[in-house]
Design a protein around this nucleic acid. Structure first.
Length: 263
DNA sequence: CTCGACTCCTGTTAGC
DNA sequence: TGCTAACAGGAGTCGA
C-alpha cells in the first residue's frame, strides 16, 4: 500500500499517539548510519528514560517530542511503522511483502513491554535528533491559497518539480502529485509561474480534495490514475494515451489530451 | 536559480 | 530455464 507520502506519514502519526506518555526503556538504531545528525548512542542517551509527549508531522517527517528533545523520523520509500507489534500499513508499493525483523532500523522499547519500530527494508529513511523543521515548507494538508500562490509564482521550474520540492511544500510524493495534476488538468511540465489565477484555484481545490479522498480510501496509491501508471496506460477520464516522461528527475504519467493546452 | 548526474538501498520484473 | 540489468521513488550532494 501507498508509498510513504504525506498521507501515509499522517497514518503513522496517528498510530504513534499510542506511544505517548509511556516510559522509554531502550532505543536501538541499526545500522548506526540510519542516525543522521547525531550518533545512535547520543539519540539513546537523550530519549531513554523519558516519555513522548506529542506526535507531530510536517510533510513526510514524523516528529516525536519528549519534554526536552524531538526525534525526527523519515521513512524513505519502504519505511513502515510498527506499534506494539501492529504494522500501521501491511504492505507498501515498491517493497517486498516480506516482513523481516532484520529490517528494524529503529526500535524503541517501553517499560510496559510494548515497542515502536521503524521497519525499513531499503534503508532510505533515517532518524534525526531535533531536526530542522523549518527546512521544510508549509505542510500540504494545511497550505493556504496565498501560500500556494507564492510557492508557484516564485519559480519557473516545472510545476510538478516545484510541488514536490519539500523545502517549498512539504508532503507530496510522486504518486500524489501525478494524481493531483491529472485531476487538475494541468501539464506537469508547465513552468510553475505560468499558472493564472483560475488554474491556481483549480490546483488548490484538487490538492485538498485529493488529499481528503485518498486519506479516506487508505493511501497515496488509491488515486484514480494509479492503475494506469504503466506503459500503455490510458487516461481513465477520456481514454487517451497516457504519456510517460521524466519531470524533475521523476517518472511522470500524464494525459496526452486533457493535461495539454490546446489552442 | 535551475539543471542533470550521481549516490544510497534492495526486491521485483523485463528482457535476453 | 536462469541470469542480468533496469527500475521503482525519497532525498541528499555536487558541479555546470
Amino acid at each position: 500500500m501507498g508509498v510513504p507520502e504525506g498521507i501515509e506519514i499522517e497514518f503513522y502519526r496517528r498510530a504513534s499517539l499510542a506511544a505517548l506518555d509511556r516510559r522509554v526503556e531502550s532505543v536501538r538504531v541499526q545500522p548506526a548510519d540510519f542516525a543522521r545528525n547525531a550518533s545512535a548512542s547520543a539519540i539513546a542517551d537523550v530519549i531513554e528514560q523519558h516519555r513522548f509527549v506529542a506526535a507531530r508531522r510536517r510533510g513526510k517527517l514524523l516528529l516525536l517530542d519528549t519534554a526536552g528533545a524531538t526525534l525526527g523520523i523519515r521513512f524513505g520509500m519502504t519505511g513502515r511503522l510498527i506499534v506494539d507489534g501492529h504494522a500501521v500499513i501491511d504492505k507498501l508499493e515498491y517493497s517486498s511483502g516480506r516482513n523481516d525483523e532484520a529490517w528494524d532500523r529503529l526500535v524503541i522499547r517501553f517499560a510496559d513491554g510494548g515497542f515502536l519500530a521503524v521497519r525499513d527494508q531499503r534503508r532510505l529513511g533515517n532518524v534525526e535528533l531535533n531536526p530542522d523543521e523549518d527546512a521544510l515548507g508549509p505542510d500540504v494538508f494545511d497550505v493556504s491559497g496565498a501560500q500556494l500562490g507564492v510557492i508557484l509564482s516564485a519559480s519557473s521550474r516545472p510545476l510538478k518539480a516545484r510541488l514536490m520540492d519539500q523545502s517549498r511544500l512539504a508532503g507530496l510524493g510522486n504518486l500524489l502529485t501525478d494524481e493531483i495534476l491529472w485531476r487538475s488538468s494541468l501539464d506537469p511540465e508547465r513552468p510553475a509561474d505560468s499558472l493564472d489565477t483560475a488554474e491556481r484555484r483549480r490546483l488548490l481545490h484538487h490538492l485538498r480534495r485529493t488529499l481528503a479522498q485518498l486519506t479516506s480510501r487508505g493511501g497515496s496509491h488509491t488515486g484514480d490514475l494509479q492503475d494506469q501508471r504503466h506503459d500503455g496506460g490510458r487516461c481513465p477520464r477520456d481514454g487517451a494515451e497516457l504519456m510517460r516522461s521524466t519531470v524533475g528527475g521523476r517518472t511522470t504519467y500524464s494525459c496526452s489530451e486533457h493535461q495539454r493546452a490546446r489552442d
